[in-house]
Write a protein that binds this DNA or RNA. Sequence first.
DNA 1: AATGCCTGAT
Length: 596
Amino acid sequence: MLRPNLPKPPQNPLNQQSFEQNYRDVCNLLLSLTHSRSLPKGLQLHSHVLKSGLQTIPLISHYLINFYSKNQLPLHSRQIFEEASRKSSTTWSSVISSFAQNELPVLAIEYFRRMLGAQLRPDDHIYPSVAKSCAILNRLDVGQSVHCLAVKTGYEFDVFVGSSVVDMYAKCGEIRDARKVFDEIPEKNVVSWSGMIYGYTQLGQDEEALRLFKQAMVENLDVNDFTFSSVIRVCGNSTLFELGRQIHGLCFKTNFDLSSFVGSSLVSLYSKCGVIEGAYRVFDEIPVKNLGMWNAMLIASAQHVHTDNALDLFKQMESAGMKPNFITFLCVLYACSHAGLVEKGQYYFSLMREYGIEPGEQHYATLVDLLGRAGKLQEAVKIIDEMPIEPTESIWGALLTGCRIHGDTELAASVADRVFELGPVSSGLHVLLSNAYAAAQRFEEAAKVRKMLRDRGVKKETGLSWVEEGNKIHTFAAGDRTHMRTKEIYEKLEELGEEMEKAGYVADTSFVLREVNREEKDQTIRYHSERLAVAFGLITFLPDRPIRIMKNLRICGDCHTAIKFMSKCSGRVIIVRDNNRFHRFEDGKCTCGDYW
DNA sequence: AATGCCTGAT
């Protein structure tokens, strides 16, 4: 053990021994109190330290800074640091890490600069804290110079330094730099791997994330619940059900399936893949449910229009003493909106304040969506005019969606006028606005807006539907004839078409005329991507297996009617997820109750 | 003495 730098020995040599004894006792006690986070006892000890003059010893101030850091009192850490007579590199390191761990990243960077200014050489323990602070603040410029300095001082290959720099680059969106640093770390640990995988998922580079995960598996490396939840989320986002199920199996083997974090991504996976029963099963099996778990289950039941379940979950949460957060309320409002429960929705909206949550932009958007879908457009406008925040694009979008559903072309056009006065908008909203003008027969303006879109190089998204079969994904576009089994698919559609007409199906071509932003021209309405996907499912899957289809755009009204007939004529359960929600068709009916 | 701390949908 290093001999501490003691202050001048007391005058009376007899006291020397007791002083050293006292010093050692204080050190040990401080360490144990830091470990157990006993704040009152620590405060007591601190005043004892001051009385006996021990605070001048660097090791003691270092322990005190750590003690306050662990107790989430970074400003106490700061005070001790400032009062310390001699500041060793350990003292600097402690105070900077206290800032980094307690949400004061700006101070962490400021002190790091001060330290460099004092001509001190940072050690390997400081870099992770500073890199983390840059990541939180999204300060790529500072992060880069920190990385440079780490390279210069020879710490870039340290697993802690490297991992934190990987995370910093990933969070700042520089995934390639993150990867370069990652590849250079000679002895990576679970944090390095998870950080890199998580970085890819955050940027939507799902394939790269999965590839890296696979490599980690093949090389038999250490992974944990964080790693699993990242890759399961990838499977959920891309609706890779089979792969997700296999990874669920891996979690089961490693017992990570009981983790709440893994559980919530599993719930979301099963739900997004249209297997709501699986989501409920996972939820029930997780012994300790955290807030994310409840929220994941809530949104899953809301998406599948199990509205009673959703509202019941909310009640269960309350009685379990789980405090809902802003996401919980978004989920509940979403559930009400998609079931047309206006009053219930308004009730939950007002309940937020009782929980001390100020409604945010997204809550207002959902409320406007709720009112708009239910046809209460004037009330929706009133909410927008009276709310304490500036309307955002999603709020205008919600109102415009309501206008479209209820054919209020006049209101839609006036909203468009109002929005354009406010300045430039994103391309998504732009499309809605151009449709609003077209629907109100203001064709000149519609053309102008569309031209603006074209000039900005915005392309319409192609409507696609896809079905998973084993480990393969079959994708269809409208009128598509590229699939290997095209002939059989079209034959099946013809055959089904006759049965459907006998059962009373009449194609509604008005959807073609009314909807400007439709995916294809009218002659292909009978071969919209979702119908091709259904036909493929019918000729591929065993009769008792539900046909699950994913679609990137909103399902059109005529297809919705057609698939109802398809489910009746074929006796199959057909589940379609469009960009908005789930539809479960069975025996000629859809769970959305035609409200979507 | 230190790095990841994830959940909603658009």
